[in-house]
Design a protein around this nucleic acid. Structure first.
Lengths: 195, 195
DNA sequence: CATATATATTCCACAAATGGAATATAAGAG
DNA sequence: CTCTTATATTCCATTTGTGGAATATATATG
């Protein structure tokens, strides 16, 4: 029930159609909360039902009519109350790190390749955040400060990944792990790794 | 379809019951991929169906019988293939950061309280990772290196959060934002904030 | 002139995850 | 001696998310 709040944040800036909200998710809000248009339209229907926004059909020729949603006082109140509630820090969720847990039983070269791939991805994402961040510099509004701060979390996150992957690659280099004990318990007889 | 792989990693260490796997998720694997026992039991059923593990019922008196799963060669092969596939970096997903996007429309004191709460939470988590990490020091096995590396991602992540929250609190202190322009578009007449 | 892209919404099948109830007993804590 | 914790599994209603089909047209690109 949290997509609701993300949509309300989008609507708090002004009246928007489902299409508009979906676009904003792609461009900014989606950095921290992704959703597909099908999900957004469905949720906006519910938001209307519960009176947090009102809908108005704006006729268009050629294209389907826009259904523009405007946040209500109840919607704004929901947003305020939400921001007073304790927000649970997100859990890390990354199967790649689970692979490290079972590192003896997976393909080390595959792992190394994934590390290299990730370095690129995270560098790209970092660059993207930096650009967005710079666009907000030298302004003096609370709104921009908020967006900057959010982007800074992203920048830190991506930077840490690049750095960690680089160091992991070094520590997992063939020379580095050559002399390690590699105890593989519970494997069939005769299949134990020789070092 | 990824819980499957996390469970296979758990099973790759040795035969386990659903209960064992659930416990391991709580203790270690769950740092990076959480799952409830109901989900784990269901998925292990599927793993058995697809021949990636075999199940054996171990009679017990008093308690329900243990159903112990042992990974098969097909299961090990699945694990190897999985580690060769490109793994998509996770997206950040945190509604708290969405609040920053709509910072003009939320309760700033609520936000500050959440920042303070997060500092504590992330410090605690960081400490937890550090302890687990230290238990693995001074060993020389690949398995332990893998777990160390995974924990280090956690440590970096938690540290960054503590640092960011602390700095965000400073930049959002009442004195700091006192002179800011606070443009609130689309609000009703007479409700615009005075600075 | 054809083709792709942007606009704009509805609907649906499916997969995955949440969050618990229900069942049954041993062992340890107070 | 009671209460909690640990052991061990099954089942299910509900929510959330994925991924795409279907519909209809204007405008920009090549």
């Amino acid at each position: 029930m949290s997509l609701k709040h993300a949509i309300l944040v989008a609507l708090s800036e002004g009246p928007k159609s489902g299409y508009d909200v979906a676009k904003q998710f792609d461009e900014s809000i989606g950095f921290f909360w992704r959703a597909r248009h099908s999900q957004i339209y469905r949720e906006m229907g519910k938001i209307k039902e519960s009176g947090l926004a009102v809908a108005e059909e704006v006729p268009q020729s050629g294209k389907p009519n826009r259904i523009v949603f405007t946040i209500t006082d109840a919607g704004r109140e929901t947003l305020l109350q939400w921001s007073r509630e304790p927000s649970e820090p997100p859990e890390m969720k990354d199967l790649f790190l689970v692979q490290f847990h079972g590192i003896e039983h997976i393909d080390l070269d595959g792992l190394r390749q994934n590390l290299m791939r990730r370095i690129e991805t995270h560098q790209d994402r970092h660059a993207e955040y930096v650009v967005k961040h710079q666009l907000l510099e030298d302004t003096n509004s609370l709104a921009d400060l908020g967006q900057q701060l959010a982007l800074e979390v992203g920048m830190r996150w991506e930077y840490q990944w690049v750095d960690w992957c680089t160091k992991a690659l070094e520590r997992l280099a063939p020379e580095a792990i050559a002399g390690m004990t590699n105890v593989v318990p519970f494997q069939k007889e005769g299949k134990k790794n020789a070092e």
